[in-house]
Design a protein around this nucleic acid. Sequence first.
DNA 1: TGTGCCGGGAG
DNA 2: CTCCCGGCACA
Length: 326
Amino acid sequence: EPRLQQEGGASLCGAWQSYGQRISKLDLTAVFSVFCLSFRKLSGKAGIDEVMAAAVLTSLSTSPLVLGNPPGTLSPEPSGEAWKEGPAMSSSYSSSSNNSGDWSWDPPSDRSTPSTPSPPLSTDTEATHFLFGDPIPRKRKNSTKVMFKCLWKSCGKVLSSSSGMQKHIRTVHLGRKADLDQSDGEEDFYYTELDVNVDSLTDGLSSLTPVSPTSSVPPAFPVLEVQRTPPVLVKPEDSVESPLSHSAPTSLCHSLLPSGPVRPPRLCQAEGHRVRSGACHPDLGSQVSAKPRGEAKKCRKVYGMENRDMWCTACRWKKACQRFVD
DNA sequence: TGTGCCGGGAG
DNA sequence: CTCCCGGCACA
């Protein structure tokens, strides 16, 4: 049903935007909002586009945070390779590599220069609108009203507009002047979007509603609260946070193309991870005794395959070399 | 893609 | 035991 999907799309837009509104110009949520727009166009048509949209939806909905169970009604099948690695990814997922180059979008290398919108987004006016202030000016189909709830610890203020919420956060929590120009582009606005009508709660997609505020959205909060940072901008990844919290939704683990093929967001393993350093798992201290495998040349390399009889027996048996120990 | 070697199997 | 190899981690 196209209509259902469209609503699902809207709901997903909301879901993603609520992942802690990090208003940074290159933020992924912003990118996603662009995607939402194109998705809406897509889902307006019939046939393959709908299937595409369904697949896309499914991909998005299986984002690590959002959900426990992907909606079974939307089959991921058409996009084929997107979920090839589905079952396996739960046990071992090396987060650092993109296995098929074409879709990874450039990491925000120029976060420090927020003055100009980045090229891929520059044409979409609505996207820029989102970037600089109002996350959801778009009209919603049904009768749900959108409210914005502040996620700062022990605040929970609910306002009806995102700009109001941003102002609230800026003044109350960040200690800024209300009328000051906000455009240093690196503020962290943690608030969530609430759909105040139960309308959409009944359909399955409601399970996609983001995560309870306390669980994951503002990972760096306690820190911010404690060290009482002055108006200096503190990005979550800059602060001293627990390693696990690094798998937070807005960290570098997701990526989406604004207009290209949509892949499932990259996952960060929160559990069952292998002990390997990766983008999402800094290093769990020093309890991991990762043996780096010393760089000494062993029999095989020294004598070569052709002189195998010169190898030490261990090397011949493919065991740890005894002649050239580390 | 090559190297080092663990785990396990055959005899 | 000795001898060998599949397969994985890593560079």
